[in-house]
Each structure stands twice: as C-alpha cells, then as structure tokens.
Amino acid sequence: MPKSFLNDTSRCTACRGCQIACKEWKNHPAVKTKQTGTHQNPPDLGPYNFKLIRFKEYKMKTRVEWLFFPEQCRHCHAPGCKEGADAILPGAIIQDPATGAVLYTELTKKFTAQQAEDVRVMCPYNIPRRDPKTGMLTKCNMCIDRVQAGQVPACVKTCCTGCMNFGEREAMLKLGAERLAKVKKEYPKAQLLDADDVNTIFLVTEDRKLYHEFAERRETPQTQYAGLNRQELLSALGKPLRNLLG
C-alpha cells in the first residue's frame, strides 16, 4: 500500500518550516534571492528547493484571501516524468512500489539538457528541475531515507499546524475526506486535488486556478499521446537517444 501526503491548505500559516526543513534535511545550500514585491522566495522550485510555499493574494467580495500552497512533487500513480524518462533511459526514474515514491536516480545525469526538458514537460505540475552543475534531474523524493526508517518526511515532521500529513494512503484519503467535509462548511469551493491519481493530495479552499499556474494539471505529451507505446511516444516526441545508448 503506497504512502500519501495530505496537504490541507486551510491549516497552512505559510511559516515555511517545511520549506526550510526540506533544505536542511537535504543539506541544500542557500540560493541567492531578491525581494521583488512578494513574500514568495525563492520565486520557484529549483535543484536546491524541492519544497516551496507559493503565495497568492486576492481581494474577494467580503474579505482578503491570502492563499498558501506548499508546493512539492505529487508522486503520481502513473508519473509522466517516469514515462518520459523510460523512453530515454529506463531506470533513470524509478517508482518505489512500497511507498509510491517517484525517485530520480543518478542516471538522470546522463540526460542532455534537452532530454531533461522533455521529461519536465511530461510532468502535469511542472515539478522536475535540472541541476545545471551536476546535470541531475531533481525534485522531492518523499524523504525516502526517513520513510524507510519509519519516520515521516522532514516537511511533515516540521509542520506546526497539521497542514501537512503523511501516512498510509488509505488513512490519508480518509483524513482528507473528513477534513474536506469540515472545510466545505466555510469554503464551499473546497476540494481535494486529483486525489485518485496522486500521492500528494492537496486540500484547497478556493478554485484551484487561483493558487498558481500549475496548481491545475496541465496538458502534457502524456495526456496528448495517451495510449501510445514507447516507440510511438518517442517518435512523437522526436528526440534522439543516441547519446545515451551509445
């Protein structure tokens, strides 16, 4: 039975404990940022930022809504990135059947920049980022080291309000349904995002479009070319494999 996250944004205070805990656990160095008129920093996910609180603010009819979105990899059941990577170099991206964690291995270093880009566009949530220094494709790995040792991921451990939860998928689905029923009373538009397809389930209180560009599933080659076999997909993508296989 895979594991799942439940990120209940109705409880998030954007304290960014998760964002920092992730960096700390992964020993990620700080990146240089600038103040540009928003609290969201760094501006986007990156090779040293697998977890990021996205901030959006709106003046609604009766009140201000400041929406916080603790962004991370969704650990899809049928990960588009893996499908893309398999077409290039099988084994570069793997999926742990025990946890459902989608894991990027050292083999992703063998991708060219363009191939890495091809894999990125396969992700409906725009999560993967290539580390320009090492060439490795990077993102959240569910803190697989911690999970194997019986602990929760660093971000979940740190969360102070119960926004982030982690456990057996069934338990998280149950918790999600309970929370949703409660949150809906205050926020009628509340919903669980793509709960059937992903292991990182977001509970949002407003229309998902309001959170950020990729809070919605985007069209990917995977969805465009659904049903194609590997060869067909590759030729559809039109990307050579010579460099890798040689």
Binding site: A98, L107, G150
Partner: peptide, 27 residues
Amino acid sequence: GAGTACYGLSRMGVDVAQAQTYAMSMK
C-alpha cells in the same frame, strides 16, 4: 523505525543497482 529500517528497496522488487543510488540509511 526499528521494525522497518531494514526494509531496503531491494526487498520491494526494485532493481537494487538503481535503488542504491539512494541513501539506504538516514544521515
């Protein structure tokens, strides 16, 4: 943790050679 720490990826049907690219124990 003590009960589950020994479960490496190899026990889960994943190619060990690949899986070993991952830290097998916590820092």
